[in-house]
Amino acid sequence: MSRNDRTYREQGLPENVPNDFPEELFERLEGMTPSEVSSLIEAWSVSDSVRHPAPGVGKARVRSNVLSAIDRRNDRAPVRRVPALRIVRTPRFVGVAASILLLVVASFLLAPEVTTFHAPEGSLTGLSVELADGSDVTLAAGSKLFVTDRFGAGERRVHLHGDAFFDVEKSDAPFVVRTFDARTTVLGTRFDVQAWPTAIDAETTVHVLSGRVRVSGTSPEAGVTLSPGESAATHAESREPVLLESVDVAQATAWRTGGFSFVNEPVGDVISEINRRFDIRVDAPASIRLRRISYWKQTVESPDEIMGDIAATIGVRYRRTANGYSLYLTD
């Protein structure tokens, strides 16, 4: 079977075979039923539209599963050869039909299943989650935790977008937290992971309260091991973790009780935290957002408190707006 001398029109198979469907796969499709060929080609076709927040799940994952399905099918006895026909191309799926097909195909091909825990914005002390192994996780406002259905006694892996405090149940199976640029591995401990990939200072920061934690970046060999009271963050250029000095771990994790703690951080990142914590919108020009500030307050009950403190600290003014606040420069 080749791309140019076969068509699936009379077999009820997809007519819009994508241009990037590998030529060598056509021979491997022989011996499969028309419905099998149809499903695989349609899955490949719509994979461009698959988006998923969890790592390793998306276009590449769908296409990898298509190839695996073809290999598994070829290992079995052939059912019926697909007749030799010519491929006819039509435009890609569009509109509602594409959306429906995408959902159906993705439901079969996207494995493992992923559960998303999301702490809504406006939550001052976050969302508490108990995992299947008995570990407890507290998510800061706006944070998301992705957990697959494989999580359990043998495999304990999660993916974090945002800020979360982990109280991990002891087990022989390592507990792994993946972020956009780091990997944190423990057996049983209490620690905090902060990872906002869209922040001005985009990095993964880990604070340890008890136990020992291994933090690595792009290279596992370049990781660091943290003891209680120690912190590390991925380096801006190398993306490898480095030990942080003079960090008050208790203050750094005070968000769980409504506290705010920032050490030499861009005002823009502080604004993002305020927006998430109080579910409001704070606007500021780049000239203010790029300034740096250190700030600590054990408990903040309203955005007015912290807005006044920030404005006074960096020498700007603020005013209320319809959706929140605006920071602006004085004349």
Rank of each mutant, 00 (worst) to 15 (best):
F26T: 01
A232C: 12
F146M: 06
T257F: 03
I314P: 05
I314G: 07
A84M: 10
V50C: 12
R319F: 04
G126Y: 02
R289L: 07
V82P: 06
E169A: 15
G142L: 06
V316Q: 08
H118F: 13
M32G: 00
W44Y: 13
G126I: 07
G152V: 01
V224A: 02
A77T: 13
L187M: 09
S227Q: 12
R6H: 09
F166Q: 05
A140F: 00
F117I: 05
G134W: 10
S238T: 15
R289I: 00
A132T: 15
D71L: 09
E230H: 01
L329S: 13
H52N: 12
D163N: 11
T185F: 04
R81F: 13
D331N: 14
Q11I: 13
R281N: 08
P18N: 11
V66I: 10
P14D: 04
I41E: 01
G126V: 06
Q194M: 09
A236Q: 12
S49V: 01
V105M: 03
D167L: 08
P285S: 14
V50N: 00
F151T: 01
R51D: 10
A54V: 07
P120C: 06
P285E: 11
V247I: 15
T179A: 05
F262G: 00
L67T: 03
I87C: 09
Q11E: 15
F166C: 05
T205E: 11
V96N: 09
A119Q: 07
Y318R: 01
S219L: 08
P78N: 10
E237S: 13
G134Q: 08
T90G: 04
G211A: 10
I293R: 08
L187G: 06
R291Q: 15
S68R: 15
V46P: 01
V213S: 04
Y295A: 06
F175V: 02
T115K: 14
L109G: 07
T179W: 05
V88E: 14
G315T: 13
P53L: 02
A84S: 14
E23R: 12
R256N: 04
E230T: 02
V82E: 03
S64P: 07
L110R: 02
E240N: 07
L102C: 11
W255R: 05
